[in-house]
Design a protein around this nucleic acid. Structure first.
Lengths: 136, 136, 136, 136
DNA sequence: GTGGTCTAGACCACT
DNA sequence: GTGGTCTAGACCACG
């Protein structure tokens, strides 16, 4: 899980997403302690202030909490984690569907499109196969 | 086709996407003339310079071109439109897949997830049904 | 000699250059009558006003003159034509040399560069051969 | 390296060319930081927005990149710089050759013409010597 | 202090 | 009336 931070979006935003993904995908377990701000900052090659800001924001979502003097921990409340994950999935799905609908596709065209893309990237190593495309 | 411009991203970016979607979904046809900068700016309730910037960027993608004193037109080259549309679809799919994979899902879980979400929003009027969610 | 008018520069400017080139390269001879504004405008698929403007400007250089009711003619004064041609050549050379000098080349590097480019485009059909290039 | 901005072409275009020349001729080195937008704008006696526009365009060529809050830098990828330089040279040569061909010269007349012009400007201090010129 | 975005208002060349 | 350019001045997010 390297830290691939691009410069086209705020860095702290990308850090939040990275940590959130790590937590919700199970890389960190409920109740587990996060590395310190300094450690994380060094690991990500980022200013500690930036990492601090990201963690503060992440705390507002409720999936991590601060123990005064001993550090930050993943919440033990799996319901919170579960709900958060579900929310992100819903958002991803909704965003994806709307994106395609804005391009003029119907609901029932989306699944086939996705299936085809998955097959293609699976077989051909994620290189897009420029088949002819219906316009519009 | 209302102009729903939010404040969380640059306005000119949203304008580009809006116009691109309108063009690629067939709301504007190949060769058709776009409204003037001033008209579009007024319609979107935006400063003409902002609209100008958006259109200039859009032009660099090749799906519109400028005729010096008579306005901007959609390209007649449907191959360009087609390729652009395909590219956007590929990006949308790739982004969606990576988002879910970052959340810990496997390739073969994505299609069922999408199917379920589509059924749910179809039957229940797009309100997310907070069923229990597996964690992680 | 087709009329290839691009839209990135004023059209009347391109017309002036086209006519000037035709005259100085001998396509029109000294004393010869130019086609009428309407003919030229139709041939170039341009608004007659635009052609008119171009011809008026061209007249200011002295290489064409107007005979009240019978049309426009190339000057018979070959000295004028000669001087004009020489001026354009000087400008072209000076512009080319300065362009390359601005890119960091020395005087004595220019000739070899041009020779090589001419050979290349002659042998390989004007396709640029991307040999390695010294930087800077 | 003074800023000689004329009024006959868009200022931001001239700025782009100036910076590009400075970069490709080695006045700025790969990886080096450019002055800030505000500094450059003041130096060129231009509105910061104009300078901003020029730099944004220049960035699209890939020879400079932006680090979100620390400034703009010359790319370290010398291959990009090299390719860009070569491209500009090719364009300059092609433009020069076509200009002369449009004036009626043959391929093999171009080199002698350039040689003579270089000698003349070298010996006589760049003042064009109006020797008699063959017509056409 | 850095780049980026936006507004407001003006002027210009071209057709 | 069209797109294009420029100025002036303001605000914001980021590190």
């Amino acid at each position: 899980m390297p830290w691939e931070l691009k410069q086209d979006r705020p860095i702290f935003t990308q850090i939040i997403e990275k940590l959130q993904n790590d937590i919700l995908s199970g890389a960190y377990l409920p109740g587990e302690r996060l590395p310190s701000v300094r450690e994380l900052a060094q690991e990500a090659a980022v200013n500690p202030n930036t990492m601090q800001k990201a963690l503060a924001r992440l705390e507002q979502t409720g999936i991590v909490y601060t123990q005064r003097t001993s550090g930050r921990f993943i919440t033990e409340d799996t319901a919170v984690l579960c709900a958060r994950k579900e929310m992100l999935v819903e958002e991803a799905v909704a965003g994806f569907v709307e994106e395609l609908r804005n391009l003029g596709f119907q609901r029932d065209e989306i699944i086939p499109l996705l299936e085809e893309a998955l097959h293609r990237s699976h077989e051909e190593g994620s290189l897009p196969a420029y088949r002819s495309f219906p316009y519009p």
